[in-house]
Nucleic acid binder design. Sequence first.
DNA 1: TTGTAGGCGTTATCAC
DNA 2: GTGATAACGCCTACAA
Lengths: 343, 343
Amino acid sequence: MRKNPSGIKEIARRAGVHHSTVSRVLNAQTRSLVSGKVATDILHIAEALGYRRNSMAVGLKTSRSFTIGVIVPDLTNPVFPPIVRAVERTMGTEGYVTVLADTDNSMETERIVLDSLYSRQVDGLILATALLNDDIVAECRKRLVPFVLVNRTISGATATSVVTNDSYGIRLAVEHLVELGHRKLAYVGGPLNASTSKSRHEGFREAMTAHRLKADPRIMYECRSLTSDAGSTACQSLIQSKRRFTAIVAANDLLALGCYAALDAAGLKCPADVSVTGYNDMPFAEHFAPPLTTLRIPLTEMGNQAALLLLRKMRDPKTVLPSVQLQPSLVVRGSTAPPSRSR
Amino acid sequence: MRKNPSGIKEIARRAGVHHSTVSRVLNAQTRSLVSGKVATDILHIAEALGYRRNSMAVGLKTSRSFTIGVIVPDLTNPVFPPIVRAVERTMGTEGYVTVLADTDNSMETERIVLDSLYSRQVDGLILATALLNDDIVAECRKRLVPFVLVNRTISGATATSVVTNDSYGIRLAVEHLVELGHRKLAYVGGPLNASTSKSRHEGFREAMTAHRLKADPRIMYECRSLTSDAGSTACQSLIQSKRRFTAIVAANDLLALGCYAALDAAGLKCPADVSVTGYNDMPFAEHFAPPLTTLRIPLTEMGNQAALLLLRKMRDPKTVLPSVQLQPSLVVRGSTAPPSRSR
DNA sequence: TTGTAGGCGTTATCAC
DNA sequence: GTGATAACGCCTACAA
């Protein structure tokens, strides 16, 4: 009255061999140690029994779970699904399974999640949640779990990460607007404790300086979150400040969307009165009203690269892997136009 | 030279007790069996050692992994992230971890994924991929894994599922259009092997009949996939057919978006020339040009309910759980208006 | 080429 | 209340 009538022992019993032989056959690497006939026999029996190896037992023995964790701050932010999907797929082809965790932007739930993942013996981690100085990352290091950062990195960039060149991206946006004739550019950015927001912020200032324009801090906003609402609020203040501006550089598509709303509410037309640029080229950005001029970042590519790096790191934890930086590209659509004379 | 110097045995050694005692303390349920003093001692040591229970060992022993799988056809379809997120969160509070799998709409990868999940001893499954008669579902049944379907169900609805009332939703759309004065309604739907598409299709015909209108099969399309491209192609054929219609009922927001594109390409204005309704109220639908009139379905709620049902089923696999049907609600925005005189 | 034996970290069932 | 021991399903020297 065995519980699982399809374990390795059961197969051994039916094949009339010892279960260690079965084990060898069932592992591709050691299969060659077993005589061809016995091997095919065993394979057939296993097939007939619908045998599936018990990964918990394997994991316990080998202390490898073939599981990785990916942690995102908010899956409903359209940036993440393509990344997660790419990671899941790439890892899947190598036999890894992906545990997804959404921290809802909370350090505390991130810590809980991390604990849960550790206790599940994940072989590696992909973090899309890194802040500039991030305790969590420090802890991953201490625990010696291979990990790679994606989208954001930490200060000093001392961990291997896959990010895009954010300051360059913003520079492209600024240049585009300047070429259109804009001189008074406002900036609506995200929280400066994330590398992306920080680099974009800095990129904005540098690009302005490079064009001998002034990055006026009075028309630069730092939103607390990367949401449409936050962008809307910022843009509202901007309008109420009565300072002159003919274009808004937003550090994120959602923020840009918020700007749309605020402009609209104030009776300002985009792009006739005010041009707006976003960042990320999120899905469907081309369908917005107006279609959003923004920076495309290769999300799927980021996911793939991150997975590939993690795979290498898990294979050989000692190697120091180079970080990868991908290039954003400007996608010009309907939200930018030459400045209006009247502003 | 022990490998993991923070296992239950190490704690036992330091506390000068047997490791089974430690085990008892570390399990909330059995803690009361141990004397208070010993218990707190052990807890402290565990804390100091940064002890995390090894779930693989626990799983091997108890044959419960505290892991569930959620399988989606395409994570970049904006319907799924909110569902997945809700599932992950609800399961998380009960100590379960969520493995995400994206099948990319392929039965074959779904089967592979499923195998991988089985071998990981998942305690339950949430499937967002069900087709009307679905081998995969049949297999889950055979394997006796608790599962619940979400969004789509199977024919006969013989599995517990959390879905919305799709035919009712489409009826709302039709009624809205009829009230605006439309009589010639075209329909752009999805593949009929999914319950959602089928119910919406039927809902359309029923609603038309109920209003003494004809659901003209010559202006009803069945797209092969629920993508913007497919919708665009369908709408293109519709336009080229030269048949009269003043409104399009699309069975999905992405299809509706495709219709936007095709109308635009043909020089037709929405809603002035043609009204369009979608389905799902995907994120940012209100930002489209024009803002999309569509049916809102409670995605987060669906995820939560599915998780809750699964939790109950895992607790007691014998109970037959009732399916849940949620109601969609019409969100009227800018893509619908009274029909133009000239059409 | 195949069998033997021990153990991965934990829980469960005894006995003390 | 606590300890001893076996077992979960599998892998892996080592022996034969």
